[in-house]
Write a protein that binds this DNA or RNA. Structure first.
Lengths: 248, 248
DNA sequence: CCATATTGTCTCATTATGGAACAATAATAG
DNA sequence: CTATTATTGTTCCATAATGAGACAATATGG
């Protein structure tokens, strides 16, 4: 499974990987009622990028996505969705990657495989901010969480990719509601209050929801199991705790 | 724009095209209240496949999709949507393509580029059955419309691709409702009756809709303009004709 | 002229949603 | 120990959306 491949930057031919095909990840983390995404920073270049990766020759593409995601976040049980594939010629710009490689002391030739045209498959992931152990990739120096409002300038078309990921995530929320997949489970404690669940929805959708309607809707879906009352909390009535029903 | 490239089958290196990247098309046609998709047939091989294509080195991927679609259908103004990218290793099976090429009198070596592993970007299209001029690609001998219920055995994972296209199309119908894109326009006469529009929806969704609800909903969306009454028709009250409002 | 099928519209029951009220109650302040 | 306070679970009602059917209108075919 984990055969040794030459590190990417020292592999000018890209041996062992599918040529011209990349993956980019929009990794959403839920932290303090804020939605953040994980970016890589390249020191001395002022360049930021989405985490990315490549597909090995003997690997399913979706498996490759899980592998790279695990390498970047340390997490294996992740909600992951392929949302779009980006193939514009405008993506083909050698400048930023060359800058990054040069800042690393490399001096790639024009036909280094990383400098060729790539089509990139976009995935978005939802992960638990607290459980993640972000790890930079071999070319970058730093992993940082950014709120969507404070995104820095991103390489290539990565801003558009992040934007499209958010749109897809929001549009998917309704449809995923009924499904048993419970995308929300990995983002919440095992037992959570209705308020916490609502806050999660509001954070992702970027808008307020009505409390009574939300509760009614959620309870009507038969995806929640009510547990005992919560003991701790604030200066007010204790809320119930819920967990997702994991039947079948 | 239309630079001359060596025909695919005589181009063992795939010069001029992005390596390892294909596109597959699920072309939906609306005919006699039936939803059909366009398949290619390879004579003497008993093999059927979705129309496919490749991306040129100096071409946006989505432009390539329109180009190929135009080559296969003769249509240029087409509703086209990229819905998923298929990258399983199981797609990598030389046998069917080798059979096809041999039936054409070709004898490709194992590393002919068409026999290598491909990742394929799936697009679905909605076209007017009557306006289409289906044209087989250089390797196939025939274009045939099939209803979804009567699909023959398809090459590789093409059946799964068609299935996913249909699911995506159906799921998208609601969301596209509000939009001004009016995906339905190219599938209907310039002026159409409410019954025709409803039939279109029913055909795509594969289920009956309630007549009064459908009419109420459509009229409430403010996307239809009512014209004069239809003059011809059957032995019954003449229905109104409508057209889509094309404002901004 | 009559029968017939389909259309445009209307009505009423049912269901979903928005918006607000209200009692319950766990912590905190006195 | 009591009062205060914030938040919760629930209920209520107005409004909106949808399901299901009724009914008159009317081109065409007989």
């Amino acid at each position: 499974m984990s055969e040794k491949l030459t590190p990417l930057e020292q592999n000018p031919e890209g041996i062992g990987y599918l040529p011209g095909l990349a993956m980019d990840f929009v990794i959403f983390g839920f932290d303090q009622y804020q939605l953040k995404i994980l970016l890589l920073e390249y020191r001395n270049t002022n360049l930021f990028a989405l985490p990315g990766g490549f597909v090995r020759e003997n690997e399913n593409m979706n498996d490759a996505a899980r592998r790279v995601l695990s390498e970047r976040t340390g997490l294996s049980d992740i909600y992951l969705d392929q949302f779009y594939t980006f193939g514009d010629l405008a993506r083909y710009d050698q400048a930023p990657l060359r800058t990054i490689m040069q800042a690393k002391g490399l001096n790639p030739t024009d036909d280094h495989w990383l400098l060729r045209r790539f089509v990139s498959v976009g995935y978005y992931a939802l992960i638990d901010f607290r459980k993640a152990a972000p790890t930079p990739d071999p070319l970058s120096d730093n992993c940082i969480w950014y709120t969507l409002e404070n995104l820095p300038e991103l390489m290539l078309d990565h801003k558009a990719i992040a934007q499209k990921a958010l749109e897809t995530l929001r549009a998917d929320l309704d449809r995923k509601l009924g499904g048993y997949d419970s995308w929300a489970a990995p983002l919440l404690p095992k037992a959570f209050t209705m308020g916490e669940l609502q806050k999660l929805y509001e954070t992702i959708l970027g808008q307020q929801l009505r409390r009574s309607s939300f509760q009614r809707k959620m309870l009507s879906l038969d995806i929640l199991e009510r547990l005992e009352k919560q003991y701790s909390g604030g200066a007010h009535k204790a809320p119930y705790l819920y967990q997702f029903i994991m039947d079948k």
